[in-house]
Design a protein around this nucleic acid. Structure first.
Lengths: 341, 341
DNA sequence: AAATAATTTGAAAAGGGTTACCATAAAGGA
DNA sequence: TCCTTTATGGTAACCCTTTTCAAATTATTT
């Protein structure tokens, strides 16, 4: 059974293919009568335009590529929804890829997406080095970076002010009276690094010593934070507050604290970042920073699509979009029990 | 700046387009020397084959459509990963859509995906009615249903044995000594319904009365289960165990139980379904049923791709794949405190 | 009524690959 | 030497839609 084409429809309707094309694409200059007749035939014959043929001639696929580290991570799944829904509203489809926080994998998918003929790219991953950026620029496809700052001509990005957010967290804990504040570092990506820098800066600003064991690193595994906190608190009981690099880590921290029969927030204050959806559902609702994940996806996609609408990429000025975070005070933090030093 | 085409490459290399095509597609009958030379030129000129042109002639897009209710739900994000990764391994891209548990939206995306020219569909949503199924069948695109049973000729699906899983949960609680077991129903989809049927069947089997207030319904909102449980337990203190329709609901239940100063599992046993990744990270690690979400995505995608490889869809026999669930005993259940009735 | 403008339609070419088929050159066998 | 094979490259048709440009029709103005 052969596929129904625009020619078949035009033959049946007794008009030219161009007229059918006009009707499909809602162009002006078609008589209402003709339109109605052709539409009827299209419906009867279940005609669906061949998108490949169209793409070939209009030189667009109306497809965007999205690279995130991990779709299962609630942070990125929310961000991805922002992207997908915004794209859909603008008649774009999204192909999603996972870089697994690995630059090589990220590059592999980048190539793959280019070969797939996406019109533009949304990249929410990769600690970008110059080689990679040059590669990206040489591709001549518009792209927008998410959750990643890179001030270079021609680079568009959407971030939240992670340094400010990180500062707020530390200031908050210090105001509560905490001095021995531990920080659980996350993967080596922009937002994690900013948060960590803020931690160091604010501690220093208040003349608080950062003992070497205050700083620990959790990789990607969800149990990491739990294990590390367990070890940390067994050894060092002077710590009164722990900052997780994100809410996932905070959940692991909470579990470890519980296991050691310490109370939150009485014995240990715990704070997260991101405000993932279960943060408020936890037994002790988590104090955290709300990161506008969805908005980030939306803003980046809108920006990308607006670039795609211009005919000349080079004419488009680069743009930085910086979103607001907000501090969400819940129940996982309180004043320290005893003054320690 | 015009795009580099296969003809340009062939001209530069001094060979025919066909030869270049052979090299790109790894066909035999190309001299090693020629191949090397052409590959070099392709690289130098950054030549990327035009996928639209290729799709047009081979009549495939190597794209699959995936419809899930909600990508942010950990159940579906894990399932989606299974789909995306399996697709990628087989050189397929995936366009993801969210139906939001709404049939109309689901149908809208179905049409959209068809127009996008996907080669096949993976549908993990929609309580399918006959009209919809007929529509699906009339489209003549291969598709596989996920987490949804439908025994009809020509229908392929992948499910887990939710009835069995549901039975295990209830049997387990009864064995622990529970009699007054409440059940929090979920959205009206296959797996939820099966679980609920199992609850009723096993309770009946053991001669246990299902009081009308045992059964409550939570919609999609994450706070639902919390609110409902709060109301439930305030009114009815004879309940000793609550079954959530999924782990999300269980988290809400736990929060409510905590708020009422009841202990888990001493005062109330709580059990979930699905085994989402944070289930084991909770303060009280959640006893639940492990649902093979990832495997489900993988199996369905493999099945779909194997159908796509045959030349004639009608020749493909329909296939049901039923996956194993497993009971995960953690710490959220125990014997009831007092014998109640 | 003629001239002009606006609307409606169509023919042919273009877009970039793949494929079927054909042509040639080199190698091997009778 | 001549005829098959085998290996390799070339040609032209085709996939289906949009685009360009021009022609035909209808409406409006003078």
């Amino acid at each position: 059974m052969k596929r129904v084409t625009i020619k078949d429809i035009s033959k049946i309707a007794g008009v030219s293919p161009k007229t059918v094309s006009r009707i499909i694409n809602n162009e002006i200059y078609v008589k209402e009568e003709t339109k109605k007749k052709v539409l009827e035939i299209i419906k009867n014959y279940n005609y669906v335009p061949n998108i490949a043929a169209r793409s070939l001639v209009i030189n667009r696929t109306n497809t965007l590529g999205l690279i995130v580290p991990n779709l299962e991570n609630p942070f990125y799944s929310r961000l991805s929804r922002g992207v997908i829904q915004t794209a859909e509203q603008n008649n774009y489809s999204v192909i999603v890829c996972e870089s697994k926080f690995d630059r090589e994998i990220g590059e592999k998918y980048l190539r793959m997406l280019i070969e797939r003929g996406v019109d533009g790219l949304l990249i929410a991953t990769l600690d970008l080095d110059n080689i990679f950026i040059n590669k990206l620029l040489s591709i001549k496809k518009p792209f927008v970076l998410l959750t990643c700052r890179l001030d270079m001509p021609g680079i568009n990005y959407v971030i939240a002010d992670d340094f400010k957010a990180g500062s707020e967290v530390v200031e908050y804990l210090i105001k509560l009276g905490h001095k021995n504040i531990a920080f659980l570092k996350g993967p080596d990506v922009y937002s994690s690094n900013e948060r960590f820098m803020a931690y160091k800066a604010i501690m220093e600003k208040h003349g608080l010593k950062i003992k070497d064991y205050f700083i620990t690193e959790a990789a990607l595994d969800k149990k990491d934070a739990y294990k590390i906190t367990l070890g940390l608190l067994k050894e060092h009981r002077d710590i009164t507050a722990i900052i997780g690099n994100n809410d996932y880590a905070a959940i692991g921290i909470i579990k470890a604290v519980n296991e050691l029969n310490l109370k939150i927030p009485e014995d240990i204050s715990v704070i997260g970042y991101d405000d993932i959806d279960i943060a408020e559902l936890l037994a002790v609702p988590l104090t955290t920073i709300h990161y506008p994940k969805y908005t980030c996806g939306v803003a980046a996609t809108q920006r990308l699509i607006s670039i795609l609408k211009k005919d000349n990429i080079d004419k488009v000025k680069s743009k930085k979009i910086i979103l607001e975070t907000s501090f969400i005070e819940r129940n996982s933090c309180g004043p320290p029990k005893k003054i320690s030093n």
